[in-house]
C-alpha cells in the first residue's frame, strides 16, 4: 500500500454540520455507520479533522473511527471526485466482459483504478459484486447501477455524465 497523504483540511462550515450530526448520537457508538454515511455527503473525505469531530461529539476515540472507516471499502479517507464509478471485478461480470468495460473507463478517463480525474469529476475504483448480476457486466456511478455495458457503451454513459444529461439514460 502506498503512503497515504492525509493532509486535507475540511472547511469549518462543514465541520460544524458534521458536529451537529454526530452530537445527536453521543454515547451511541452503534450509530457510527449512520453518522458516517450521512457525513459522507457533506465532506469531501473522511479526513482526520472530520474523524476528530465525529469522535469528540460521539464520545468515542479517533482511532476507532479510523479503524472503522478504513475497514469498509465504500468509505473513503481521501477526497473523491464528484462522481464515484465502481466497476464490479467479480467473476459473474468478468465472464460477461467486464474487462472491456474497465478498459473503456480507463481509456476514456485516462485514470487507473483508485485514481481521480484531474478535473475532480470522477473517481474510479473496482469493487466486489454489486448484485446486478442479471445484467452484468455492471458498474455503479454514485448510487445508480448500470448493466449490460461494453467498451463503447460505458464511454457513452460517461459522456452523458460529463454533459450532465444522465437522466435520459436512466429513463
Amino acid at each position: 500500500m502506498n503512503q497515504v497523504n492525509y493532509s486535507i483540511t475540511t472547511p469549518q462550515a462543514q465541520l460544524v454540520r458534521v458536529a451537529e450530526i454526530a452530537a445527536a448520537w453521543h454515547g451511541r457508538p452503534d450509530k457510527l455507520m449512520d453518522v458516517i454515511l450521512e457525513v459522507q455527503h457533506i465532506v469531501p473525505a473522511l479526513a482526520e479533522d472530520v474523524a476528530a469531530v465525529i469522535a469528540r461529539e460521539m464520545g468515542i476515540s479517533q482511532n476507532d473511527v479510523y479503524s472503522f472507516v478504513t475497514f469498509y471499502s465504500l468509505l473513503p479517507v481521501r477526497p473523491s471526485g464528484r462522481h464515484t464509478i465502481r466497476a464490479c471485478s467479480n467473476a459473474p461480470c468478468h465472464v460477461r466482459g467486464s474487462k472491456a468495460v474497465m478498459q473503456g473507463i480507463e481509456d476514456f478517463l485516462k485514470i487507473r483504478p483508485g485514481e481521480t480525474t484531474e478535473d475532480g469529476m470522477f473517481t474510479y475504483t473496482l469493487c466486489s459484486c454489486l448484485g446486478i448480476c442479471d445484467s452484468s457486466p455492471a458498474i455503479m456511478i454514485d448510487d445508480k447501477p448500470y448493466g449490460n455495458l461494453n467498451y463503447e457503451s460505458v464511454q457513452m454513459l460517461l459522456k452523458r455524465y460529463i454533459r450532465e444529461d444522465v437522466d435520459a439514460w436512466n429513463r
Binding site: 500500500m1 479526513a47 474523524a51 479517533q62 476507532d64 479510523y66 479503524s67 478504513t70 471499502s73
Partner: peptide
Amino acid sequence: GVLSVEGRGHDSKICPPY
C-alpha cells in the same frame, strides 16, 4: 486510544490513525 487497525485483509496494519 492511539493505535488503530488500518485497512483490511493482507494490507491491514496496526498504526496510529491517519
